[in-house]
Amino acid sequence: MSKNSLSQRKAAAYLGISPSTLRAYVRAGVSPPYIELPGVRRFALSDLQIWLASRTVEGAQ
């Protein structure tokens, strides 16, 4: 697997959420894209960055 892919636990830490919250996002279909193999779910760092950027809200001025 790519050096730029993270385990679900590390992806959750990168996003600042718990692994259980990330699992809930996956179940709800609102998570960042991921690769799933038997027993393994990996998240590309670039996909996490894009997913976060798409949810960035600019503050009121």
Rank of each mutant, 00 (worst) to 15 (best):
R9E: 13
N4K: 14
S46I: 08
R23V: 13
L48Q: 02
R9G: 13
L48H: 05
V26L: 10
L15Y: 09
L45S: 06
V40D: 09
K3F: 08
S31E: 03
L52A: 06
T21V: 14
S5A: 14
S31R: 03
R9W: 11
A11E: 00
S5F: 06
I35H: 13
Q61P: 04
S2R: 13
Q61D: 03
L15P: 01
L52Q: 13
S18I: 07
N4I: 08
T21G: 08
Y25T: 04
R9K: 14
Q49R: 10
V40L: 13
S5K: 12
D47I: 07
T56Q: 07
D47V: 03
T56P: 02
V30G: 08
A13L: 10
R27Y: 14
M1L: 13
A28K: 15
K10T: 09
L37V: 11
I50A: 03
R27N: 15
T56M: 03
S46K: 11
G29R: 11
S2C: 12
R55P: 04
R42N: 06
T56S: 00
I17P: 07
A12K: 00
A13P: 05
Q49M: 05
L37M: 15
Y34A: 04
L22H: 01
A24I: 10
A44G: 11
A11V: 05
Y14C: 05
V26M: 07
L52E: 08
S18W: 09
K10D: 15
R27G: 08
Y34P: 02
Q8F: 06
A13Y: 08
L45K: 10
A28P: 06
Q49F: 06
A24C: 09
Y25F: 05
R42D: 02
R23K: 15
S18D: 11
M1V: 14
S46M: 06
A44V: 03
G39F: 03
S5W: 04
L6F: 02
E58M: 03
S2Q: 15
G59N: 01
L15H: 02
P32I: 01
E36D: 11
V30A: 06
R23W: 09
R41W: 07
T56C: 06
R55A: 03
I50C: 00
V57W: 00
R42I: 00
L48V: 03
A13V: 13
S2W: 09
P32C: 01
L45M: 07
Y14W: 10
V26I: 15
A53K: 08
A53D: 02
Q8C: 14
S7V: 02
N4W: 12
L6N: 08
K3N: 15
P33T: 00
G39K: 09
L15K: 04
Y25M: 01
